[in-house]
Each structure stands twice: as structure tokens, then as C-alpha cells.
Design a binder for these strands. Structure first.
Length: 426
RNA sequence: GCCCCCAUCGACUAGCGGUCCAGGUCACAGCCCUUUCAAGGCUGUAGCGCGGGUUCGAAUCCCGCUGGGGGCACCA
């Protein structure tokens, strides 16, 4: 039987990284087996916010590169059918009416068990199973009824979801059984925690995939990182392409315990991916990112600046703070300003450099440092500060070249205070 | 309270009875390189929660404890 899985989020807003991880595992499993990956929206009303959330979720999945099969389905479309099935269950004695609602009759004795692919055998005492409401008194079916019903309707072969659904499983199993439906294979993947060991939430920082996108993370890096949370290939392979992940992903290597989301490791991985991009691809990514974030900076200059930062930043979001001085003057931190003694000499030296290119600039400035008896660091740091407004920046010589002689000299001035007063573009 | 699940360095994990005085990666520390910051190279600190079993032998199997998580809706 061909594999068919589904990701079934409730449309409450942007996709959470935990949800994205669940979606990823489903997608990897489907692609690994040449099966189908479907999106099913689990909702109960038709409000505008829901429609937006559905679009957002689809947009996020697309950005992550998790392509869908078949149409996106919605619980809404099956309400009438669910009601019919519920009535049939009443007729067959599996359910009964209760104050206008329809309740499913759960067994009172024995146990309900299943072989979970990641958790192993799980047994629930049936006395724990309450007669659950299938259809509310207002006619709307409930999640625990529609979810297994739709799994059956759609021919879902494997239900891969978060462990927060473990306790729903015995109830859904009982319903599927009463329906006479095929029982899918269940795989409950571990949940994600924040750095403090508690449920990952906004207080920990970025939480939705869109948050990470806005910070300049690459979809490939996020996908790679998420795959490593609860799953591993072996004892040493961590950096894998999408194709490698698809080829290597198996549910039996998914762990059973919760994983802590490590922002630092994600950042490191993103840096690895960023540095690994071909220069033109990197420039494209940077241009696209800055445009998405609303920066209206000269594209040509951004492209020329790209090589200066590729080795230095771990997320595209660091670019404005790191290289923003190329697009607008930045006032140096007064606390960092020295006496500026080398500045006049530097200005004089630079004025004579022709052509104004990194190599020539470097030769000239190193010569200056030697003549003044200064260590490179001592000579260059004041210039860097005057030029970039910061003690941390891209390479000094390349930065000078990009800024051009005129602007560079204007910033270095010679007064020791860097640039004409009020000239800072802010 | 009841039910279910989980438990290897700070974090992600490898380990499926002996090849583990526990390996890799991030983070952290030191050194090297160096125009700052990164990157890179080298080295290092750091872990099998506790107690009982089983076995010639346990991180690996069993039981208990402790700790953590999840769930107990006419929410999803």
C-alpha cells in the first residue's frame, strides 16, 4: 500500500517551529517512501482570521520547501458527512444521544493498545476512556471524531504527529474500530522544549517559522536543524541536504524523548549554510531578504557588500547592523573614540591612493602604520571607528574601497572627531 | 488527583550486553592565525539521575524511586 500522510494543523496563526518539525517529519517520511504528503486544516469555524492563517501556513510550508500533494482539505467540508456517520453509529449502538449531543460509547473494561512506531507498545486502561462527544448539540462534530474519520476517508496510512496526541489515540482507535475502518500506523514524535526545559513559547524568543525567516535564516538550514531535533542519521553526520535527508529519514531513528530547541546551534548551522552558498546565490538571498524586510538600499551596493560579510554573519538579519554604515553614516560610540591622532595622517595617505582599491589601500595604510611606529591594530582601529561607527566591521580596506575615496575622507575628516558635524544620515 | 510517556556531557545526539575508563556536533575555555569581528586549525572542561535486581559481564534488560513532559472539555 502506498504511503499517505497528512499534516493537520489548526489554523490559529503562523506556523510554530514545533508544528513545522512535525510537518517536516511527515514530509520526509512521505518523500522517502515515494508517498503523498497532504495538508488538512483542522478547524470548526469560518472566520476571516482562519482564512488568513491557512494562507500563512501554506506560505510557510512552501517557503520551507515542503511541497504538498492533493488538495488542501478542511474539516468544514466534511461536517455533514460526519453528522451522518454519527447517526449511523447511534443506529448501530456505538453511540447515543445525550442532551442534544451524540456521545460515543467507550468500553469500560479491558485495555486499548497499539504499537507506536516511536514509542513502542502503549496500553490504556479502558476505564480511563470517557464517552466522548462526537457531535455537539449545535451540530458541529468534535476534533476527536472528525480527525480519525478523515484519516479513514483520506486513506491515511501513517499518522505522524506530536506526543501531545498520545492520549487521544486510544479514543480515536475505538472510533475507527466502530467505523470498521483500516487502522493507520501511529508515530508520536517528541515535543519541543525551550532552553529552560519548558514548553517552547514566545518568551524564549523566535517561535514561528516566520520569525526565523524575518531574522534571516535560510529554509535549508532550518529544515536541516529541525530534522536533527528528535532524529539522527548516525553518530556524526549532521549537515545534510534535503535530498540526503529524504533518502536517510526513517521513523525508527526518531527518538522518544523531548528535545530542547537550541537557538545557538541553529545559528551556527545557518552560518554554515550561508557560508556555503555560491557568491552570486548569497547576494541574491541577501537582496531578497533586505527587500522583504523593507530596506530600500541600493541593490548594486548590497551585491558588492555581500562578499565582505558572507564569512562573518550567521544570519542575514545581522547585515544592517554589520554593514549599514555603507548606506548611511553611523555616529561612532563616543566611549570608543580615542584621540584620533592617526586620522589626519590616514586621510592624507588615503587621498593619495590611486586607484582607490583594497590592495592599494592596504599597502598604503600598512606603510603609514610602519612609519608611525604603530601596530596594525593600533593604526587601523581608529580609522575603522570613524568609517563604520563601530569597533566591529567587515574588512577595513574593502570597506574603504566600497565607500569610495570621497566619502571615506569625509568620514575620516582629520579633525579627530570624524566627519562634519551633523553629517550623519539618520 | 488519575492515566500515559520520557530519562547519556549545559544542549542535540551515537550507543540496541562485552569492541565504551562512553563517540560526534553546538556552546564554553585555552592556544594558533589575524586590520576588528567572524571563519579556520589544535587542545581542553564536561555525561550514563538514584537504588535494587538479572548476568561471567549493563549506559544498554527487569523492578522501584526521583525528576521531567503530555493528557484528562459539547478546545484542537
Amino acid at each position: 500500500m502506498a504511503v499517505r500522510v497528512r499534516f493537520a494543523p489548526s489554523p490559529t496563526g503562523y506556523l510554530h517551529v514545533g508544528g513545522a518539525r512535525t510537518a517536516l517529519f511527515n514530509w520526509l517520511f512521505a518523500r522517502h517512501h515515494g508517498g503523498e504528503f497532504r495538508l488538512r486544516i483542522e478547524n470548526t469555524d469560518t472566520s476571516r482570521e482562519v482564512a488568513e492563517a491557512v494562507d500563512q501556513i501554506q506560505g510557510t510550508l512552501a517557503w520551507l520547501g515542503l511541497d504538498l500533494d492533493g488538495e488542501v482539505t478542511s474539516q468544514l467540508d466534511r461536517m455533514a458527512h460526519a453528522q451522518e456517520v454519527a447517526r449511523r453509529l447511534v443506529d448501530e449502538g456505538h453511540a447515543y444521544e445525550d442532551e442534544g449531543a451524540i456521545r460515543f460509547r467507550m468500553p469500560d473494561e479491558g485495555t486499548t493498545a497499539w504499537e507506536d512506531v516511536v514509542l513502542g507498545r502503549i496500553e490504556y486502561p479502558n476505564e480511563q476512556l470517557e464517552d466522548l462527544v462526537l457531535v455537539r448539540s449545535d451540530g458541529r462534530p468534535t476534533y476527536n471524531f472528525v480527525s480519525p474519520l478523515e484519516d479513514a476517508l483520506d486513506g491515511i496510512t501513517h499518522v505522524i504527529r506530536g506526543q501531545d496526541h498520545v492520549s487521544n489515540t486510544p479514543k480515536q482507535l475505538r472510533i475507527l474500530e466502530a467505523l470498521g475502518a483500516e487502522i493507520p500506523v501511529y508515530a508520536h514524535v517528541p515535543l519541543l522544549n525551550g532552553p529552560d526545559g519548558r514548553k517552547l513559547s514566545k518568551r524564549h524568543g523566535a517561535i514561528t517559522v516566520e520569525d526565523f525567516r524575518a531574522q534571516g535564516y535560510l529554509p535549508d538550514a532550518l529544515v536541516n536543524y529541525l530534522a536533527l531535533l528528535g532524529w539522527s542519521y548516525d553518530d556524526r553526520t549532521e549537515i545534510m541536504t534535503r535530498e540526503e535527508l529524504v533518502e536517510r529519514f526513517t521513523l525508527d531513528r526518531v527518538g522518544a524523548s523531548a528535545a530542547t530547541f537550541d537557538y545557538q546551534k541553529l545559528e551556527w548551522l545557518n552560518g554554515v549554510y550561508l557560508r556555503g552558498l555560491a557568491p552570486d546565490v548569497y547576494a541574491d538571498a541577501l537582496v531578497t531578504y533586505l527587500r522583504e524586510q523593507g530596506y530600500e538600499w541600493d541593490e548594486e551596493l548590497v551585491r558588492r557588500a555581500a562578499p565582505l560579510v558572507q564569512e562573518k554573519i550567521a544570519a542575514l538579519g545581522e547585515f544592517p547592523a554589520f554593514a549599514g554604515f555603507l548606506f548611511a553614516r553611523v555616529e561612532p560610540d563616543p566611549a570608543l573614540l580615542g584621540d584620533g591622532a592617526v586620522l589626519p595622517a590616514a586621510a592624507e595617505t588615503l587621498a593619495g591612493v590611486e586607484p582607490f582599491e583594497a590592495d592599494q589601500i592596504e599597502t598604503a595604510l600598512r606603510g603609514l602604520a610602519e612609519r608611525l611606529g604603530l601596530k596594525p591594530r593600533e593604526a587601523f582601529q581608529p580609522i575603522r571607528l570613524a568609517l563604520t561607527g563601530s569597533a566591529v566591521s567587515p574588512g577595513l580596506f574593502e570597506s574603504l574601497e566600497l565607500l569610495g575615496k570621497e566619502e571615506s575622507l569625509a568620514r575620516i575628516g582629520g579633525s579627530g572627531r570624524g566627519g562634519a558635524s551633523g553629517s550623519s544620515a539618520r
